[in-house]
Design a protein around this nucleic acid. Structure first.
Lengths: 256, 256
DNA sequence: GTCAGCGTTGCTCATGGCGCAACGGTAGCC
DNA sequence: GGCTACCGTTGCGCCATGAGCAACGCTGAC
């Protein structure tokens, strides 16, 4: 058992799952390509892929074609979020918010020192934005991240923050500035991020609280900066705060 | 090689994936429980689960606790939806439907208070209809529009509906009548429009759903009213519903 | 205290998975 | 057109590897 790096256990299962991750990264790949990356014979890779295919976790683009991720994953992921009542309660509210604003709505939680995006409802705009679901995004560069941080104590916050990389010229990179920002977030009840993760991307987020009042998640509306100008920010802010409060209520916070 | 049902290939991978499906169905389970269902020793089940855990596809509720699906699945599913393009997935199904019925097939989505037509496949008839792709069409006067509206809540529906102009004598122009119509659409799973947008134009539409079951688009068959009489409506309805369900499946919805 | 059941872990053996080589098909290139 | 090169796919035989066994630490019920 030459268990060098972290993932191990059952070799063939490990390899199969590595294939899934590989396909998630690059879109699609052929058997030979996969085999050489895994360092196994292509017949081995083929059998692994065939087993994944039998469970609809991958599918081939055409007969004798390349392979890509399959719809079976959607079902599994659906079951994953279905057990989180947060997502269940938030979804109708998200849809309503997305339809009112026409922009993309996301729900994120704190996970391992970053923001984990749990759900996304696309806005009505024809061009689809990038899908964030399942991704871990840095806390200091997003509106959701700021909201999630604003629910932590100073010590917890320090523990969670590692290095704060600059993604754009306006990314907050010092703890002092971030603390001031978080104070503001706590005071006004929402967070704003303009061009901080990506130039041209604006987002507004508000906290979702559980029955005890703890910040358990964050809900955001995001879209291109050219479409979300100063005056729309104000309108959207009101709506996202209201929506997040509605979800908080459904989770038992406030009562009335 | 005593595998009864379809899935086979690499045994341990097959078992691991079966565990995922099992967890998707029932929420969470312990090692012993899983082992007995798979018909293997619990140490075997444990190692499979541990490998899945190393890739974050499952997680345990607490130390030495039960197992459930993990967040790694969200990431994989996110990568899947990124490549899922409605038009691309729908196109082969549309072509088949157009060739079976001989009429024109359209795919539309909700956009800015109207139905936006994304794709069209012309029927085999010599008489070609005009091209709807890219056009915004009123929601209350088309079968596609009714289907798209039927997926909205009452508030969302009201927010989206502006004034309901009459295009023909049979156009629905009151909210009460439209609501009754939408209830019927929801119940029967398709929408019909005869001479409502244009005299002499009949269309039948059915909903396309995403993995969550949300109505994300609508697929319609349309043609001259003289060619689509009462008896053909019945035949066409079945086919368009079936086709829309096929596309929904490709987008991850349902699976039996 | 006892017992039963859980998740977890060395150990050992045979079985299931791997590499090999060959096949059929396709695309590109002289 | 024939040739080459490479693709995904498949039977076969050997041995690494994954399965079963049994024991351990732990928790909770009685």
């Amino acid at each position: 058992m030459s268990n060098a790096d972290g993932a191990a256990g059952v070799q063939s299962v490990d390899r199969a799952l590595t294939i899934l991750e590989r396909l998630a990264r690059s879109g699609e790949a052929g058997v030979t390509e996969i085999a050489s990356e895994l360092g196994v014979h292509k017949s081995t890779a083929f059998r692994l892929v065939a087993t994944l295919e039998a469970h609809r976790l991958v599918e081939q683009t055409e007969d004798r074609g390349k392979y890509r991720l399959g719809v079976g994953l959607l079902r599994l992921a659906g079951a994953t979020t279905a057990r989180l009542d947060l997502v269940q309660e938030a979804r109708p509210v998200c849809r309503q918010l997305a339809s009112e604003t026409g922009e993309t709505v996301n729900v994120a939680v704190l996970s391992e020192s970053s923001a984990l995006y749990l759900d996304q409802v696309a806005g009505s705009s024809a061009l689809q934005p990038h899908n964030w679901v399942g991704q871990h995004i840095p806390l200091h560069a997003t509106s959701n991240g700021k909201v999630l941080l604003s629910g932590l104590s100073r010590q917890e916050c320090d523990a969670v923050l590692s290095k704060m990389s600059a993604y754009t010229p306006t990314t907050i990179t010092t703890k002092a500035k971030l603390r001031a920002e978080l104070d503001q977030v706590r005071e006004q009840g929402y967070a704003l991020a303009v061009d901080e993760l990506e130039v041209g991307l604006t987002a507004v987020a508000a906290p979702i609280r559980n029955v005890h009042g703890d910040v358990v998640a964050s809900m955001s509306v995001s879209g291109p900066t050219f479409r979300i100008g100063a005056e729309r920010v104000e309108e959207i802010t009101g709506k996202v705060v209201e929506a997040a409060e509605e979800v908080s209520h459904r989770l038992g916070w406030g009562h009335r």
